[in-house]
């Protein structure tokens, strides 16, 4: 690490500065790790000594051994993969469709004013309440779960991105128009690129929302997936199974979030340095 810092540093003062930054980062990471370890340790001890009911709250070692066992049978991968797939597809379709609709209504200011109250109404409506409708139209399976993830992400994406399109700095638009830009050129050269950071921010929000949609969807309809494992474990009072599923959801959604965060930094880095 030292040699890495040396290579990046432009002077010895700069090197000390980088070292300090790196040291702070190390401190943050080790504290984060310590919190996790202490939390798991207290949980384990509390369950073993019956301070909490291990039947209700399980314990890290029980969760771990069940996870290992289910991994060996291939069961865990099957459920995880299905849920992950539903989430990614729902998330992508919801986000892309939301951006597409935003572009469409940007293209027609009249349409945008006409549709506004409907968008607001759809947005404030709790999308999970649409569950029964999806089930009767698409059957109790993949389609309904996907529809839930999409319905939860698409409207808010449309609203946020369309708002962003409209609030692009006026001086950019005037510059483009003074060169004689057409409306489509203004969109391609100014409005769309100016909104990319907000689209990435929408991706971040949508990852979380898509997970909500998929898990709720699986609660309602499905015969497989992590949401199904959670509801099944709850019904048969197998709470270790619930915990295993929860941990996997937490870990994968965090990884997805980090991935988009990384994309964002890559993009900003690419742009501004």
């Amino acid at each position: 690490m030292k040699s890495y810092l040396k290579r990046k540093a432009v002077s010895s003062a700069h090197e000390r500065y980088l070292q300090k930054l790196w040291f702070t980062q190390l401190q943050v990471w080790s504290t984060q790790l310590a919190i996790l370890v202490i939390f798991l340790w207290i949980w384990e001890v509390a369950a073993n000594r019956q301070w909490i009911d291990p039947f209700l709250f399980s314990s890290p070692s029980r969760i771990w051994s069940l996870a290992v066992q289910m991994t060996l049978t291939g069961e865990l991968l099957h459920h995880t993969w299905l849920t992950l797939w539903e989430t990614i597809v729902g998330f992508l379709i919801g986000t892309l469709a939301g951006i597409a609709v935003a572009i469409l209504i940007w293209a027609s200011p009249f349409l945008s004013r006409v549709l506004e109250p409907y968008l607001v109404m759809l947005n404030s409506m709790p999308k999970v309440a649409l569950g029964p409708l999806f089930i009767v139209t698409m059957g109790a399976g993949f389609g309904s779960v996907l529809a839930m993830a999409i319905s939860i992400t698409v409207i808010i994406t449309t609203i946020v991105i369309h708002h962003r399109f409209q609030s692009v700095d006026q001086s950019y638009l005037i510059v483009a128009r003074s060169f004689g830009a057409t409306r489509s050129q203004i969109f391609r050269k100014i409005i769309f690129p100016a909104s990319i950071p907000d689209m990435i921010a929408a991706l971040k929000v949508n990852v979380g929302l898509a997970w909500v949609g998929v898990i709720v969807g699986e609660f309602l309809v499905s015969k497989a997936g992590l949401g199904y494992l959670i509801i099944y474990g709850f019904q048969v009072f197998h709470l270790t199974l619930v915990m295993v599923s929860l941990w996997i959801v937490a870990i994968i959604s965090a990884v997805m979030y980090q991935f988009i965060d990384w994309l964002e930094h890559r993009w900003i880095h690419h742009r501004y340095s």
């Binding site: 700095d169 001086s171 950019y172 005037i174 510059v175 100014i190 690129p193 742009r271």
Partner: peptide
């Protein structure tokens, strides 16, 4: 223009 309006991403 009075405001330069340089595109920040270019």
């Amino acid at each position: 223009l009075q405001k330069d309006g340089l595109l920040e991403w270019r």
